[in-house]
Amino acid sequence: MIEDKNIIIELKDVYKSFGKHDVHKGINVKVPQGGITVILGPSGTGKSVLLKEMMGLLLPDKGEVFIEGVDITKASKVDLVNIRKKFGMLFQNAALFDSMTVYENVAFPLREHTKFKESKIKELVIEKLRLVGLNNVEYKLPSELSGGMRKRVGLARAIVLEPKIILYDEPTTGLDPIMRDVVDDLIYSTQKKLNITSVVISHDIDSAFKIADYMAMIYDGKTVLNETKDNFKNSDNPYVQQFINGSKDGPIKMF
């Protein structure tokens, strides 16, 4: 069990369906402040939906979502906007604004929420792009970039305001092994340097164990286990073991 102190995000008994498709059937996740929580689970189990519920982009049908103790499922539109300012989010497919250049994409949050001068904005944008390993792409459009590059631009955009909580939806999927390591490292060092809270969705069990402080596993719309990394690793839960070992035999059915 994760201790009840310093919980920054908590989902309590969350249910969510799209039409007849029940995606969440009782999700419980606690995210402690100031660490990296990695959420694992086979694809299609609603991990992206889970992240969207955390910042109120989707509302659960039932259940509560607490951000620093405030239930955002009951928050007003204005409160929700203010709560979202605490977050940065990297979308699974980056969700870059395709009518804007890379530079304008990363500068967008700065222009919207700060009064920085253009010179300062430029400095920050270039700095963040360097941080994710991108050079000389500032004036390209997202359509001119590879999938991995788009993802890194999305990452730069998500961290440029240095938010309190950063949500990463499969930040390393589709990257080459070296870039994967760079991004893992970036997530890790950003978290340590700024003492923020990170939630990372991942498929990659090795990198998950490398960066995580806490872990959660989702399967069939429910939380299988939400634990500290060590307890998670040593758990004898058959679902967790099957996922860690990457075996096709076990309680998790892929169809």
């Binding site: 982009l57 979308f91 969700a95 604004f97 395709d98 009518s99 967008f108 919207e112």
Partner: peptide
Amino acid sequence: AEIGTMKVTEQIDALHSLAVD
């Protein structure tokens, strides 16, 4: 077509996530 594309490629969600209506 433009706003619809933004919707299905999650750019509308991205605006929300950046606290822009």
